[in-house]
Amino acid sequence: MARWFGRSRSRGNDKAGDAAEHEHLEPLGVSDDLRLAYGRTGDPKLLRGSIQAAELALEVYPVTDVRHAAALSSLCMLHRLSWERDHGTADLIKAIDYGRQAVDKSPPGDPELPRHMSSLATALQEAYDRTEDEESIDEAIALYRGCLDLLPTGGGTGQGEERVGQESNLANSLLRKGRKSGDSAILNEAAEHARAALRDTPDGHPMHAVRLVNLGGVLLGLVQNGHPEHIGEAEDMYTQGLRELPAGHPASAGVRQTLAMILGLRIQFGI
Rank of each mutant, 00 (worst) to 15 (best):
E55N: 06
I93K: 10
G158V: 13
H68V: 01
E167L: 14
R179K: 15
L46C: 02
D110W: 00
S168Q: 07
L245K: 04
S8K: 03
G29E: 04
G29C: 03
K94C: 05
G165C: 09
C147A: 02
A234Q: 00
A196M: 10
H227F: 12
V223I: 10
L120F: 11
N172G: 14
E126D: 14
T258Q: 12
E26M: 02
G165E: 11
T201Q: 06
N225G: 12
A196W: 11
Q240M: 11
E23I: 00
E233F: 02
L222I: 00
R199A: 13
L215Q: 01
Q101W: 08
K105C: 08
R35Y: 15
H79I: 00
Q166E: 14
G49E: 03
P27C: 06
N169T: 01
G216R: 05
T64A: 15
I271T: 14
G182R: 06
T157V: 09
I137C: 03
T239A: 09
A123F: 06
G160H: 03
R243I: 06
G217E: 13
D33P: 02
P250D: 05
A194L: 08
A69M: 10
A142V: 04
D129A: 13
E233V: 02
D138V: 10
S173I: 04
E23H: 12
V164L: 08
E134C: 07
G221V: 00
G49C: 08
L198S: 04
L215W: 08
L170P: 03
D200F: 11
P111V: 08
R40H: 11
K177W: 13
P250Y: 04
D236W: 08
T258K: 06
G160L: 05
A69K: 08
R85V: 08
D133A: 13
E23D: 14
G204M: 09
R80G: 10
G165Q: 12
Q125I: 03
E59L: 12
I271Y: 03
S119G: 11
H79S: 01
A194E: 01
P44K: 01
G156D: 05
G156T: 09
G216D: 05
D200A: 13
L143T: 01
R80N: 14
H205E: 02
D138W: 09
S50E: 00
L187V: 03
S31Q: 06
K180S: 09
D86K: 09
N172R: 14
E139V: 12
K94A: 14
P206H: 08
R256G: 06
A121F: 10
Y238K: 01
L265H: 02
R40F: 11
